[in-house]
Simulated assay, not measured.
Amino acid sequence: MNPMGIHAFVWSAGSTPEDLSRALDHSSALGYSLIEFPRLDPKKFDVPAFAQSLKAVTMGIAVTMGLQPSADISSEDAAVVATGEQVLREAVSVARDLGAQKLGGILFSAHDKYMTMPTARGRQNSIDTLRKVARYGAEAGVTINLEIVNRFESNLLNTTAQGLAFIADIGEPNVYLHLDTFHMNIEEANPADAIRAAGDRLGYFHVGESNRGFLGAGTIDYAPIFDALLDNGYADTITFESFSSAVVDKDLSIITGIWRNTWDDNVALARHAKAFIQDQMDSAARRRRITRTP
């Protein structure tokens, strides 16, 4: 059975020691096996101490992030690209020091609404930079997982097919796709087929509803998605992600368009999400047994 994770923004938008501890405690109490944090600033908390807290509750961790425009490695400006490379290297280091094995998110461009088409030079700058970061990640024991996001949050990688071609051009074995049902629901012609196409390059998976709220209270058809995950042989973490303006930080709220409270009871939200994902996995397994039993 796949381990289940939850994004820390369900609990808090901050990264103070108190914020981190609260997110960790809530996630552990509800039975999640992994917590996902946005890129953490090591100047704001004690990294070794928090790593020990994670070990004490046997909670796994993943780190995700999006690059700022000033650190956009798909830029044609060499100084901006160099800044982005340094940001990514620091993120790998923090992930390593916390015991995380995955760095995911929008690592290939800025997490922003672009007003221009991507350029061949910018794409190559991103590929060349990520190749170096991936090698650094391999030394640190951290995989690089590129989140395929919708057209309003990046202009470079919006579909699984684009992501697979991009990974092939990077050419490093520890670079994977990070897929997300929210984004796939917007961009993919067939999300289930996209998951199957990802094959063994699927390294991390987000489940999020079309309206960013309670799972099942939107328009996403989850049954084919979980069937595809089973067909794919994906056995890694499935992480629940949800944003509400009651919690999410201001910058992310603007970028992702969270203009209202999609929920106001995060404990009920997280408890429901865990049960929903478990039921979807169980149902997919039952369908497989029925259809494939001689």
Results as ranks from 00 to 15, higher is better:
Met4Ile: 12
Phe9Ser: 08
Val10Glu: 07
Val10Ala: 10
Ala13Trp: 15
Ser15Leu: 08
Pro17His: 10
Pro17Leu: 06
Glu18Val: 14
Asp19Thr: 09
Leu20Tyr: 06
Ser21Arg: 14
Ala23Ile: 07
Gly31Phe: 06
Gly31Trp: 11
Tyr32Asp: 00
Tyr32Gln: 01
Ser33Glu: 13
Ile35Asp: 01
Glu36Ser: 07
Phe37Val: 00
Phe37Lys: 01
Phe37Glu: 00
Arg39Asn: 09
Asp41His: 07
Pro42His: 05
Lys43Glu: 15
Lys44Leu: 14
Lys44Ser: 14
Lys44Glu: 14
Lys44Val: 12
Lys44Gly: 10
Val47Lys: 02
Phe50Pro: 08
Phe50Ser: 04
Ala51Arg: 04
Gln52His: 09
Gln52Gly: 08
Ile61His: 03
Ala62Met: 06
Val63Ala: 00
Thr64Tyr: 01
Thr64Arg: 00
Met65Val: 01
Leu67Trp: 04
Pro69Tyr: 08
Pro69Met: 02
Ala71Gly: 08
Ser75Thr: 05
Glu76Ile: 11
Asp77Tyr: 12
Ala78Ser: 14
Ala78Asn: 12
Ala79Arg: 10
Val81Pro: 06
Ala82Leu: 08
Thr83Ser: 13
Thr83Phe: 14
Gly84Met: 07
Gly84Cys: 05
Gln86Asp: 14
Val87Arg: 06
Val87Ser: 05
Val87Tyr: 10
Leu88Glu: 00
Ala91Pro: 07
Val92Pro: 03
Ser93His: 11
Ser93Arg: 12
Ser93Ile: 06
Val94Lys: 00
Val94Tyr: 01
Leu98Cys: 03
Gly99Tyr: 05
Ala100Cys: 01
Ala100Met: 00
Gln101Thr: 12
Gly105Asp: 01
Gly105Cys: 00
Leu107Lys: 01
Phe108Ala: 03
Ala110Thr: 04
Ala110Arg: 09
His111Ile: 07
